[in-house]
Design a protein around this nucleic acid. Sequence first.
DNA 1: GGCTCAGGTCGATGGCGTCCACGGACGGTG
DNA 2: CACCGTCCGTGGACGCCATCGACCTGAGCC
Lengths: 152, 152
Amino acid sequence: MDAIDLSLVELLRGNARLSYAELARQVGLSAPAVHERVGKLESGGVIRAYRAEVEPEAIGLGVTALIGIVEDSGGDADDVLEAFRQMPEIESCYFMAGVESFLLKARVGTIAELEQLIVRLNRTPGVASTRTGIALSTKWENRPQPLTPPGA
Amino acid sequence: MDAIDLSLVELLRGNARLSYAELARQVGLSAPAVHERVGKLESGGVIRAYRAEVEPEAIGLGVTALIGIVEDSGGDADDVLEAFRQMPEIESCYFMAGVESFLLKARVGTIAELEQLIVRLNRTPGVASTRTGIALSTKWENRPQPLTPPGA
DNA sequence: GGCTCAGGTCGATGGCGTCCACGGACGGTG
DNA sequence: CACCGTCCGTGGACGCCATCGACCTGAGCC
């Protein structure tokens, strides 16, 4: 992970469809060299995926909610997690410090679907209670921040 | 936005670096046709960006926090928003229903940096108080959910 | 019917991805 | 010091891909 790798990561976070030739020009290496570096970043787990970022409303997912989960004292966190994983509406899942063990970001089409999701969550074994906040609008999301090399 | 557009979006959400030729094979059109469709999806705002998804720890951003913001009664939400926008640590920003007007997802390198960020947030004009939760681990994030055509 | 337009296919061409052989820099070893 | 792997890069070659223009086809409308 040197400065060139960092530049490549930053370039690809900004635009994942840049060609290797273009990346090569930007970092001052040849295309095969860049190809190899990016390959190593991928297989080394630094780059996890390349994703198109889509306007959620355009694909019928207009409702965003953030849901805090309080765990049952007797429950097993792994089982709860597995149950969450089965629910495709849950886009993100964080294990949190605090009373609410999990924070979920969910995306659904309608408030009715959100209601159904919350019911399902509350019925899930290991879940004691839920607390839902609705996002009225998303100002921005997953904005890449400029990379400062570790130790700068 | 027909079924083919939806497939293209779904394919690109899964892997943004697919070639037009490969997309064409998957949806059963010619490459130029796919090229034109994807171009329209981009310029129509359905596809907002293509991003590489990076392991945050690998680029020195090991601490994830979710911060709720209570607004000052006298403040202007736009000014607050603009102040948030200037803080690169804030990756996502939702305008919420409820007492806490905003929910922020922030990513920093160390707890010390998080402390500094919280101090800056509390000093921001228009911000009455903040409430910070720390993510101990990210189970998953921005998982694309299977697309169901609107009305299915 | 015949016009027009949207949206597709086909063919050509220049650039790109990717494989391979080669070469210099570096560090450990007789 | 000379020697020799190893790492990491370059340059060339070749086939595939992106992209443009020309043409085709079906739907909607005078």
